[in-house]
Nucleic acid binder design. Structure first.
Lengths: 243, 243
DNA sequence: TAGTGGTCTAGACCACGAC
DNA sequence: TCGTGGTCTAGACCACTAT
């Protein structure tokens, strides 16, 4: 690990360089979800820095939900299990504060040329194609969300032929393509329900629905998935914490 | 600072105890917004712990936006200036990515008995009263937000008699009552515009608007302000980052 | 009992800002 | 040139887990 002695420009702290090299192991699949990684002392010896520097790198990765540390046991690569996804990526909460994972029913799957919006958000070229998955999601047995997931066809072609799409697609991305969703950005608007959406949600056409447009990014920061959800916020709300 | 030697239960790390005692200085007004606080070495000597422990406490407070650290200069108590509030507490962004602070026009001010919702969210007793401020906020000259701010009358009675309500009310809370807003929780729903709101926003009654209900908390975790905003999401959206 | 992560300390040197 | 926060190291002890 280079110590970056005199150059003032482009300086990166040692622990940040260590972190980058450890994230690289996740990207390359050298460390897989659920796996126990070497102890701090072992990593310190291997990389040639002190345990404290390793600790700072691991703490930063833990703060980004890439690792899970368990005292007395060791440090593990984070897995996209339901409970974590529920808290990290699913913000629709019952008005009484209950959190629960929605169930899903697939409406259709299709491959088509990407729309300008899809090309822009997923950084796709002019003639790109996308796989689209439409589904209805229910909370407490009530259909409240209509959702369209758009994926670059080039990268995710195999999803079109799959016999079944699981409810937790981020685990599918991880297991089938080795893609880890590290962060996502959402844009929220209030819109009028289109007739087709209204039919699925059991509301009047034109009724106000919450539109959530999400772009999800992998470990390298590349956009992977565009997801547009339209939600009936009756008895549920989108929770956001500012601090 | 007690070292908490053998009791396994209710153990709190030393740096967390130090942090609590430093936050207490902010609560009590011993350290005021904008003020330069003592150096790490001075605090270490004063409190009787190592510089590293002080550092960990200060880093945690910095992460919570309570302090601002400037290399070579020192550590300062954070101030509620526009630019910080804009990023920390204002999530409505132009669709092209531009962020700007809205202008405000006060519609009315009044003191009234708290509604059940206000009592629940602000933890008020049965006969409590609140001061309500209604205003319209514009972005790029267009009125896009109708907002009602509810404050416990007991604590903020003086606001009713003020000649003018500034645009940045969090700075007002800080300067006039020494109240620092540390964090807030928002609940978002899509609702139909009420006729009165529609008139102010220049949209049709029943048009979909984004309702944002925010409860803001002070340094001690007490709810201070309930704010319900109804926003026309035309050309703007609510931005949310998940990570 | 051994090994892990969590906390705490002490001291060194670097980068930045003010003087 | 000095004092600040930022980084890095090395070593001690504590708390938790598994054996």
């Amino acid at each position: 690990m280079s110590q970056a002695a005199e150059p003032t420009f482009a300086y990166r702290p040692l622990y940040a360089q260590v972190k980058d090299s450890l994230v690289r192991r996740l990207i390359d699949g050298a460390w897989l979800p659920g796996q126990l990684i070497p102890s701090e002392m072992d990593l310190a010896r291997e990389i040639g820095v002190s345990q404290g520097t390793i600790r700072k790198a691991l703490d930063a990765m833990t703060a980004e939900n890439l690792l899970v540390r368990r005292q007395g046991r060791g440090t593990y690569v984070a897995e996209p299990e339901e409970s974590r996804i529920l808290f990290q990526f699913f913000r629709l909460v019952s008005d009484d504060g209950q959190r629960s994972f929605p169930t899903s029913r697939i409406l259709c799957r299709a491959t088509a040329p990407a729309t300008p919006d899809e090309r822009e958000r997923l950084l796709l070229g002019p003639d790109s194609r996308v796989v689209r998955i439409e589904r209805v999601r229910s909370l407490g047995g009530r259909p409240l969300i209509v959702e369209t997931i758009s994926l670059p066809h080039e990268r995710f072609a195999a999803i079109e032929a799959m016999s079944e799409i699981p409810n937790n697609v981020y685990r599918l991305y991880s297991q089938k393509w080795g893609v880890t969703i590290a962060r996502a950005v959402e844009r929220l608007k209030a819109v009028a329900a289109a007739p087709a959406d209204a039919a699925e949600l059991g509301c009047a056409p034109g009724a106000p629905v919450l539109e959530v447009a999400r772009v999800a990014y992998d470990l390298e920061g590349n956009p992977v998935e565009l997801r547009v959800s339209r939600c009936l916020t009756e008895g549920i709300h989108y929770a956001s914490e500012l601090r």
